[in-house]
Design a protein around this nucleic acid. Structure first.
Lengths: 206, 206
DNA sequence: ACCCTTGCTGACCGGCAGGTCATTAATATA
DNA sequence: TATATTAATGACCTGCCGGTCAGCAAGGGT
């Protein structure tokens, strides 16, 4: 009747390990995180971790892939099957999304991408295809819809849809670096930005 | 008459070493750069490096301090002793600055700050005091001047001067990560951004 | 109850990189 | 030229950490 020293749970292990890794990377960054530390957090031996992930780098990539895709897909799904006007979409779901990111655990990922990305070109490639280019495409879709509706005029935003997401990156980075020195009201920040952009691209109705 | 194996150049060494470190960090990032590699680039032995910098971390901080301050001071100096209008300043020297950063070696520093910053709180503190808060203050000055002139109305930008610099961070990050996949015309990007902002805050003269 | 498969453990290894220090050689001084 | 000073070297040490592997034990099959 001895208490078993462990249980076999092949199914759950990978997710538990990536979760633990996410938390660890968030606190210490990639290079400074020891694989054993990740294992310990996951309640697992280092050896087991290496059964599921070939290398530390492999683990890192898995972390990114796991956390990013679901979030973005949710947002994009929102665009297609909603009947909001373009402005309503930007002030509604998009703004919500933008406000959420800097506060969510996902913000850590952004920092990790910036920090470690250049060392993992294939990861960047994946991220580009599955996240960034998709996201930009979605924004273009919204803008085009706005133009078709007569809400928006054509503007530089058509060439630089990135302008819409730039403050997301900014407030995320700001929060992780400078919050102790000066808080940034990320919600107000995002709202103001959207205001400015919309003010510039909206067709004057008067 | 044997050729000397080295020369004593106490004065120049530190700068040469930080230059070398800057280049090395730029290529490989902080953690992946070996101290010996830095020494080699500087044409110096590892031992000597440790005469001038107590630790690797120390070296890192010196690199940041060396490269950042001069640049920013130059820009800020520009504000005070120019008689440009606020708009002229934003479309002139400020825009030039913003266009330059993502192309200059300084862009590496931004990545390094994002990547390594959280592990060096005292460095962040220094950066906050000597770079960021100074810069924000300068922007506020320009905005206030604009308001006094009757060029600008008061706007959310007074509360969030960061909106002006956010695309600098963005285009820098974009360039280092995604350039191989999709080039970003950083000049056009910055110009469009300034256009949008000015369009929103300018007092209507009609 | 007995295998037999396989999820899981943890002691171990090898190499690497940050940091030290005894020694050397270039200059300053006289 | 002789001596003192110190910039500079590079071999060396040490601890750490990614990665391995021989073996153990959980739990399914019969």
């Amino acid at each position: 009747m001895a208490k078993p020293r462990y249980r076999r749970r092949k199914e759950d292990r990978p997710a538990e390990i990536t979760d633990a890794a996410m938390a660890a990377f968030a606190e210490k960054g990639y290079a400074a995180t020891r694989v054993e530390e990740v294992a310990k957090r996951a309640g697992v031996s280092k050896g087991l971790l290496y059964l599921y992930f070939k290398t530390k780098e492999d683990l890192f990539k898995a972390v990114i892939r796991n956390f990013v895709s679901p979030r973005l897909d949710a947002l994009i799904g929102n665009i297609e099957d909603s009947d909001l006007t373009a402005e309503q979409f930007l002030r509604g779901p998009f703004l919500d999304f933008a406000k959420t990111v800097p506060k969510s655990p996902a913000r850590i990922l952004i920092r990790l991408m910036v920090a470690e990305g250049p060392k993992h070109p294939d990861l960047i490639a994946w991220y580009w295809e599955n996240v960034v280019s998709k996201g930009l495409q979605a924004i273009r879709l919204v803008l085009e819809k706005g133009v078709q509706n007569g809400e928006f005029r054509r503007s530089a935003l058509d060439d630089f849809p990135q302008l819409l997401i730039s403050p997301i990156l900014f407030s995320t980075v700001w929060t992780t670096l400078f919050d102790p020195h000066q808080k940034l009201d990320t919600d107000g920040f995002m709202e103001s930005h959207i205001d400015f952009v919309l003010h510039s691209i909206k067709v004057d109705k008067t």
